[in-house]
Amino acid sequence: MRQQSGDASVLRRLNSAAILRHLRAAQVATLSELARGARVSRPTAEVIVDDLIAEGWAEECGDEPGDRQRGRPARRFRFRAASRHVAGVGVGALLLRAMVSDLGGSVVASRQVPNHAAMSARERVDAIAELVEDVCADAGLPVAELVAVGVGTTGVVDGAGRVVKSVVLPGWSDVDLHGELGRRLPAPVLVENDMRLAVLAEHWRGAARGRQDVVYLFTENRLGLGLLIGGRTHRGAHAASGEIGRQSGDHWQAFRHLADYAMAVEPGELRTHQQAAEFAVARAEEGDERAKAAVRAFAAHLAEGLLTLVNPLDPELVVIGGSLSRAGDLLVGPIQDYFDDRCLYPPEVVASGLGGECVTLGALRWALDHADQVLFS
């Protein structure tokens, strides 16, 4: 927004921000509505709106059907979500994903590339920066025009954006991801734990919309956890909330039922935990009774582990996310039955519909929240 010198310019910027906030919230508004919302005179609102249009923040709407029959209609204006953009990045064990969206959350470009375990930390940071540049090029935008780049990564992430500890990606512990990306990208960078961003994505566009207390369980190549308490993601005293994955005993025991089934069906085929799980789920969907039993046993094991968290937290919803959420009721049904039998107030259990994009979408939402604070405060 235009800046001027003196006290008048400060008041003008405050009034402009107030009108812009009101327009963004309303999506479409008349001058009178904007003036009331910002508590300024109508002439002042008109001057400010003209400036916002000139600067690309707003645009005038065309006539709606029937306007001409009612006489001259009031001028209506809408917020231009495409005036600015943000990016979101998900750093997973196998893939790097990136998206660019406008300020309305509409994704305008997306990309993904492999994340090889053999990469050094420097190579991985370089790959993330290159991915952001490429996805921005796809969107026809220079990186420097992004309001923010949100990054969700596996590992314990402190308040400064440093990966304090990672047991999933080799060499990823003690990496100053915020600082390293900040030196490579000409845009503000935000770094957060992937599971916290995954539950944020569910609250924004997934199964947890409108819910305040949610437990999110990630089921893929590892197990992870995200908590939404009172509508806010929970970080924990050491920013380690959600890091339950790769605890060897529990991790193996949860997947053992699926791995045993896969080995029994195809003894000569070596599979990772995730591959065995996907194999068993696919066979269960085809009607294989032994596969169904293996998936039910896996679900019961997950439910048993979740119970110690669900009972004291009393969430209203449990979301099963990650690639194994595609199992749907094969996984959700046994967990729901387990809670119904053992919880004083059983939460609803649902499968996520966001798939592998959950962390990247959460990173987008987090970047959008930052944009709101920077642009509209």
Rank of each mutant, 00 (worst) to 15 (best):
V143Q: 05
V175R: 15
T154F: 13
T219S: 14
E145P: 01
T219V: 15
A208L: 01
V151A: 11
T154R: 11
V157Y: 04
E133D: 05
G206V: 01
G206M: 07
G159F: 08
P186N: 07
D158V: 00
D174Y: 07
T154L: 15
H203D: 11
R232P: 06
V151R: 00
L200C: 00
K165T: 13
L190T: 09
V135D: 11
R235Q: 09
V175T: 12
V151I: 04
E220V: 07
W204S: 01
G226E: 03
I229T: 12
V157M: 07
D158Q: 01
G171F: 14
V175E: 10
G171H: 15
R162S: 06
L190Q: 11
V199K: 02
V135A: 00
A139H: 01
W172I: 10
E133H: 11
D174W: 02
T153Q: 09
A139G: 14
S173A: 15
D174L: 07
A207L: 05
A139W: 09
S173Q: 11
R232A: 14
V163R: 14
L185E: 02
A137C: 12
V168E: 10
E202I: 03
V189H: 05
G210E: 06
V215H: 08
R205S: 08
G224N: 13
P142Q: 02
E133I: 04
V175F: 07
V149M: 00
R222L: 12
T154K: 07
A201I: 01
L197S: 04
D176I: 12
V214C: 07
E202G: 04
D138M: 03
P186A: 13
G210W: 10
V151W: 00
A160L: 12
T219G: 09
L141R: 07
D174R: 15
E192P: 00
G152Q: 01
L169R: 06
